[in-house]
Simulated assay, not measured.
Amino acid sequence: MSKVKYYYDPDTLSYRKIEPKKSRRYRNIGLFVLGSALFGLFCLILLLNTNLVNTPRELSLDRELKNYELQFELLDKKMQQIEEVLANIEDRDNNIYRLYFEANPIPEEQRRAGFGGVNRYKSLEGFNNSEMIIATTKRLDIIKKQIAIQSKSLEEIALLAKEKEKLLAAIPAIQPINNEELTRMASGYGYRSDPFTKARKMHRGMDFTAPRGTPIYASGDGKVTRADNNSSGYGKHIRIDHGYGYMSLYAHLSKYNVKRGQKVKRGDLIGFVGSTGRSEAPHLHYEVFKDKERINPINFYYGSLSLKEFENMLKYANQENQSLD
C-alpha cells in the first residue's frame, strides 16, 4: 500500500492530503515495469550462461556430446589394439618371413611415416575438440598406410614363396637311381684312378653301378636340353636345365625316355642305364652343374635318402678307388 503524504495549510491551519499527479503515477508505473523487464532479462542471460538451468535441447546436446566422447574412447582402444596387432605382424614380417626369403626388411620410419605437404586436416580446425579430432584422424591415416604397406609386403612374400617353391622343386635333390635297384656306389666326386689309363685324374661326377636297363629318374624339375650321343666320352646322355643356374647330366645310357625340349618333373623316368661311350661297365655317370661349374652331387640327396643311407653313400663316395669312365 502506497504511503499517503500530507502538507500543512497555514491559511486553514490544517493538514491537507497531497494528491499525486496522474502523469507522475504513470511515469512511476512505467519505470517499475521497465526495471522489472531489465532485471528479468539480466536474470535470463545469467541463467543461460550458467549450468544452473538447461533447456531440453541443451540437455539433449549434452547427452550427445558425452556419447561422442565415449565413442572416441572406444575408438582409441580399438586403434591401440590394431596398432599392437600390426606391430606383431610387422615384426614377424621383417624378422621371419622377409629374413627367410632373403628380402630386405621394411624400415620402421617407412612404416610409421605420416603425410607431408598440404595441411590435410585444415577442415578440422576451429572446433572445441579440434586437437583431439585431428590427432585421431592422423592415427587412422597412419594405420591405413601401415596396412597398405603390410599388404604389399605380404603380396611380395607370397610371390617369393612361390618362387622359392619352384626353386626347391628345381634343385636336383634326389638320387637318380633307386637304392633298391642300385648294385653299389662305384665312385664318387674327386681324384680317382682312370680305368683305361690308370692315371690319377679328377672325376667330376658320381658313378652308380646298376644292371643294364635300370630306370634313371630326373633329380629335379626342368627342361631337357640334350638327349644325344654327340658329347665325347658320355655316350648316350641327357642334360636337364633346372633353372636358377642348376643343370644335371646323366651319361652312358642304353636308351632315352625323353626328348630334347621336353619338360620333366622330379622323379620322372628319363632313361635307362647302359654302357655307351667311354665306359668300362654298365653304370650311370651323374653330374651336377651350378652356374656352369661342376659341383659334388652328393650334397643334393636330401630329398631321397635317409640319414643312414646318406652316411653309407658318403663313406663309399669318399674312397679313392677306380672310376668306371
Rank of each mutant, 00 (worst) to 15 (best):
A281D: 02
L59A: 14
G245N: 07
A186V: 01
F196K: 03
K201E: 13
E19Q: 15
E156L: 04
M1A: 11
L47M: 14
I238Y: 00
P176H: 06
G274Y: 01
K122D: 11
G245F: 07
H242T: 05
K263I: 14
P172H: 05
Y244R: 06
N129D: 11
R111C: 11
E109F: 15
I177W: 01
N318Q: 13
Y302F: 15
T276G: 08
L168D: 14
Y6R: 10
R27M: 14
E180F: 03
E293M: 06
T197D: 00
N95G: 08
N51W: 03
L168H: 12
Y217F: 14
S14T: 15
A161P: 07
N230A: 08
A173Y: 09
F42V: 13
L160N: 05
F72I: 14
Y68G: 08
I149H: 04
I134L: 02
N67D: 15
R25W: 11
H252E: 06
L253C: 13
E155A: 11
D291S: 15
I134K: 00
R260W: 06
E309Y: 08
L34W: 12
N230F: 10
H285C: 02
L269Q: 01
K145D: 08
L38G: 10
K162C: 11
F208C: 03
Q80H: 10
L13F: 07
T276Q: 07
K236E: 03
R192V: 01
S232N: 08
Q322L: 09
R184I: 02
T197V: 00
E84P: 00
Y286P: 03
S36R: 01
N49G: 11
I270R: 03
L75W: 05
S248V: 06
R25I: 14
N178H: 10
S279Q: 00
N321I: 12
D194C: 02
Q175R: 07
E125M: 07
H283P: 01
L284C: 03
M206A: 05
L253K: 03
N230P: 02
A251V: 00
P282V: 03
T137A: 10
N299Y: 14
D241S: 08
G277H: 00
N312S: 09
K152Y: 08
Q80Y: 10
T55V: 06
Q110P: 09
L284T: 02
L307E: 15
K5C: 07
P172M: 03
G233W: 01
M206N: 06
E69Q: 15
D141G: 06
L168G: 14
I149A: 00
R204V: 09
Q71T: 14
T137G: 08
Q262V: 09
K223F: 05
L52F: 13
F72E: 13
I216N: 03
P10I: 06
P195C: 02
D62Q: 14
F32K: 12
D221C: 05
T209R: 15
L31K: 14
T55H: 12
F32V: 09
G30I: 10
E58T: 12
D241Y: 04
